[in-house]
Design a protein around this nucleic acid. Structure first.
Lengths: 353, 353
DNA sequence: TTGTAAGCGTTATCAT
DNA sequence: ATGATAACGCTTACAA
């Protein structure tokens, strides 16, 4: 079935069929209905390649998931991000395609880049990486290809959407301080990710502003996985310098940390309080219920799509850098009691930067 | 940059450039090198839409991940499957695109289907669903669209790749029987998935062949998630009829079950032995080390891609139904001692069906 | 081995 | 509001 055949069947020109397909208002209702009928009857769907070639638009945007597929997809954070991005696309009649890099071969990733980006398979791309100095950002910038990051980027010319990780982490730690904990430790994310750096910075700032110096022996490095959080917590427990509270840079790690406490015969929050980050503890088996700093992850995904689309529409426009607000969810693990209610508490700046 | 410009720069016709780009051997080496040089110098990459339109091939295959994005992507099983599929594509210079269905709206999924499949965005599709009577299978069959399932399908006309879940589960349970356990329970997967049904069937067969009747009070239903396994195990422990061994239909669930045992103050394998399925316990925090039936998940992904590609190449060919072998990994949780070695033990039929 | 030319199925511009 | 007609950038017989 081609547009030509439909045109013939409907007794109109292919221009008219094209207009109907694309919702052009300049078609008589009578004609539109008739043509649409024939389209439906024959199960006609426009050929994507022909359409893209003629319109110079694919109506697809990519979601680039950087290497380490395993690590990445395992994190529930990504599920929400993806879901948000899919929603953002659906709302605008775009298609989302996940671009997967193979774990090992760097060359083949390069090939995928060329094929997909330079070959104009997609109109724009959302990048869910956010490691410091990801080379792909520069490539895209040079190619003048529309893109947006989920996770802030230092360069003022790069579009992104994020939460304010520094302020949010700081608020979380301040909350622990208000509880009266004296030895507040931290499990960080990988040191090459901006979110890790920012959250750690917030942790340090909160301590410093309350007149304390951060103690390196209370800090351990995780990798945003449950197992990483488990090991980091174990490490801290084994070095003989036990904290009475922990700020953990992700809920996934926090769930591992809680597990480590349990396995060590310790109780949270009585022996060690725990505060997480992300707001997806309900996806995990966590007990006690985790207190956490909630990010609007789905919104981040949607917003990233919106930004990309706006850049697709007009590539000349100024870059968009947007921060979405976070919210504290105070539950049992920080010592707030069994109350399961969330206390609203915007930490992000909100609105444009 | 278009092929035309490159041709002009190289002083050849665009056919020749096309031949070089596509690795056609009918080009003089001298010319090929010269043209390639110019291509590289100018960073030329063929336009995907134009290429597809002319060749009637997109060189993309889709990986359709059925609804419930959350449930599905969370399972490490999928990570391996995806990785395998990506590899299979890389090897053949195809692109893999993940087709995501939005969680809620059924209509939009339909739209995606039409746009992607009927619009010929992709040449073929791997379906990672495997729920009983997935309507999409029939749709694809009717449309004559190349596809392959990961997970067997009862219809003889449908191509798929799978392991023999019945036999494999049976072997696992027989192993538990050989250990001397008397009250062997089972945690199943969702009842609408073929893999669940088959594994449960294997469990029942093993019991029956050893002269026992399966006891419904020793069986609980999970959903292939860690949490689901946790709850199912709790349920069995609470009904007062404690098993001395468990066959759990996935490692993810098994890890939850082990957790439930620990939380109940029981030890594995001494109080309750546990045998898993999948072979991805190392991804999980499991203690003791889980005995499990290993599936070659990545191979399943690769193989599914291969099958789809062969059907793309010649749509007329007979459907391919292939079973890959499984392997028992006997570790501590079934009572085999701390030995971490894997005992080879092909359970699949191997080769074509 | 290389070039010529005819599509591939749309959209977009310009008349009417 | 509708219809011709010229792109869009490439592949692919077919000719040379």
């Amino acid at each position: 079935m081609t547009i030509e055949e439909i045109a013939k069947l409907a007794g109109v020109s292919r221009s008219t069929v094209s207009r109907v397909v694309n919702g052009d208002p300049h078609v008589r209702d009578e004609v539109r209905i008739h043509v649409q009928q024939i389209i439906d009857d024959n199960g006609y769907h426009p050929n994507a390649a022909a359409r893209s070639l003629a319109s110079r638009r694919t109506r697809i945007i990519g979601l680039l998931v950087p290497r380490a597929i395993g690590v990445v997809l395992q994190d529930p954070f990504f599920l929400h991000l993806i879901q948000g991005a899919v929603e953002g696309c659906n709302e605008t009649d775009y298609l989302l395609t996940m671009l997967l890099e193979s774990a090992d071969v760097d060359i083949s990733n390069q090939r995928v880049y060329d094929r997909v980006i330079r070959g104009r398979h997609i109109d724009g791309v959302v990048i869910a990486s956010s490691v410091v100095e990801d080379p792909i950002v520069e490539r895209l910038q040079q190619d003048g290809f529309p893109f947006a990051l989920v996770g802030r980027h230092p360069h003022h010319d790069v579009s992104f959407v994020d939460v304010n990780n520094v302020d949010s982490a700081k608020l979380a730690v301040q909350h622990l301080i208000e509880h009266g904990y004296r030895r507040i430790g931290c499990i960080t994310g990988p040191p090459n990710m901006i979110a890790s750096i920012d959250r750690y910075a917030g942790y340090v700032m909160a301590l410093q502003e309350s007149g304390r110096a951060p103690d390196r022996s209370l800090t351990a490095e995780g990798d945003f996985t449950r197992r990483g959080g488990y090991r980091a917590m174990q490490e801290l427990l084994n070095n003989g310098n036990r904290p009475d509270a922990m700020f953990v840079a992700s809920d996934t790690m926090a769930s591992g940390a809680l597990q480590a406490l349990r396995d060590a015969g310790l109780r949270a929050p009585d022996d060690v309080a725990v505060f997480g980050f992300d707001g997806l503890d309900h996806q995990l088996v966590s007990q006690p219920v985790l207190s956490t700093m909630v990010q609007p992850i789905r919104e981040l995904g949607r917003e990233a799509v919106k930004i990309v689309l706006s850049r697709v529409a007009s590539n000349e426009s100024a870059p968009t850098q947007r921060y979405l607000p976070t919210e504290m969810a105070l539950r049992a693990s920080c010592g707030c009691g069994a109350a399961d209610a969330a206390a609203g508490n915007g930490a992000g700046r909100g609105g444009d930067a």
